[in-house]
Every structure is written in structure tokens, then in C-alpha cells.
Amino acid sequence: MEIFLQQLVNSLSVASVIILIGIGITLIFGLTGIINFAHGEFLMIGGMTTWLVVSNGGGFIIGLVAAVLFVGLLGFVLERGLFRLTLDRPMNGFIISLGLIVVLQHFVIRFWNSYQKSIPEPLSGVWEIGGVQIIVMRAVVVLITAVVVAITFFGISRSRYGLALRASVADQETASLMGVPVRRYITGVFIYGSMLAGLGGALMIALFPITPFIGSTIVVRGFAVALIGGLGNVAGAVVAGLVLGLMDGLSAGYGLPEWTEAYSFALMILILLLRPNGLLGGTAGPRAV
């Protein structure tokens, strides 16, 4: 039993990173229809930024903040300079993002190298509760994610901006008639989603090493989470992220490890076949639930 609990606990931290990515994608995709497959590279760059700061003597927290800010800035520049031009033809944005993947990866490889990067554990220590080892750093990752999710959730459901965002996703034209500057919201959502990806990267490298190539598996998981949870649905992304994260951990722990990635995709295919609008439903609009 405690082995099973241990597996659950282990998977939570991985699920957290997936949730952060999934929320970003579901908001961006839900509002703008932009399919940015380079979103995983945003996470990778976030992690690399943290590594850069830490390996040059900075503390982890500085590295984390740097990652969030830098990737947010990157998102802003790309939205303004690139994706904004494709708003009328989202398919073009998608194709551009594929090229962006290669550009971002090779930027990192060119200036550093293609090897794994890691940082020393920012927080060491293990709590033991009832025979289950809870690695402190992992618990922190889960905690940070929970806080971010809560902030996002309440921001969208309670604040004036969240209201305007939800309206924009439902009906861009009418929202603008109310005075909502929809283009600015699109940029804002893109920046926010990017910042979440940067945060995810910083948290990930705090746990284990990353290479310039981790983006691809992450982003597919992120889209799976967004689709399974229902596009634009933050709560759905959280639930789907938990399910997928658990799936990953349990399949590695109990199934054939070589097939780990396949299980998550099989699950996604199954869910989308049965409920095409996602588990919690909704193609239109970021909603509270």
C-alpha cells in the first residue's frame, strides 16, 4: 500500500509541471485559436534560464523569477512580432510554431551545447510520513503550482479582467462592443501562458536534469491536457493534468516502462473518442468551471 501511495506522491510533482503547461495552452488556444507547438520550448528556455543564473552563482529563487520574466518577455515579443500576424489564419500560426521549435532548440544548442543541464537541489531533505518518502523539493513544486492554479482560477472567475477574458473567448466581437480591447487581452493571455511555461521549466530543472529537447514531449502532453480538460477550461486542465500525471507515474511504476509515453496518449485518444469536447466540456471560453 505504501508503495502505491509513494507512486501517487511521486506523480504529483510531474503532474504539476504538466498542469502549468496545460493551463497556458488551454487559455491561449481557447481564446485565440493559436496553436503554438513551441510552447514546450518555452518551458525548456525557462529551465535553461534558471540553469544559467544558478550556474553563474545566482540563487534558485532569482533563477526562477528570471525564468518567468524572460519567457514572459519572449512570449510578448513572439505574439506581437509573429503570432499576431496569423490571427486570421491560425493554421499559419501553427506551422510557424513548428519552425519556432527548431529555432529555439538550436539557439540553445548553438550557444551552449546539447547535453543535459542540471542544478544542485535548491532544497534538500525528505519527509517521511507513514513509510512514504516525500521529497521536500517535489512538495514545494506541488505547492507552488497549487498557488498559481488558485490565483489563475480566481482571477478568471472573479476579477473584471477574468470576466472580460471569458467574454472575449465566447464572442470576441461583442466583447469589443462592450469596450474590451480584445487584442490586448490576446497579448496578455499569451504572456501569462508563457510565464507559466517559464515557471514550469524552472521547477522542472529543480527536480531533474533537462536537455534542449524536452520541449516536444512536454508540449504534446500540454495539448492533451488542454483537449481532455476542454479548451479554455482551467479547472478541466487541472483535472486532466492530474489524471495524466498519475497515468505517467503509475504506468512507469506498474506497467512496462518502455511504453510509458504510450499510455498517456492511449488515454487521451480514448477520452477524446468518448467525449470530444473534453472531460469537463466546453470548447468556448475560459470558465471558472
Partner: peptide, 14 residues
């Protein structure tokens, strides 16, 4: 374990 594994905790728990 598959190549490129970085999170060994599930396998180690197993």
C-alpha cells in the same frame, strides 16, 4: 528503463 529518462522515481519506487 527507456533512454532519456530523467525522473526515475516511479521505477525506483517499483
Amino acid at each position: 528503463y527507456p533512454p532519456n529518462t530523467t525522473d526515475f522515481t516511479p521505477l525506483l519506487t517499483r
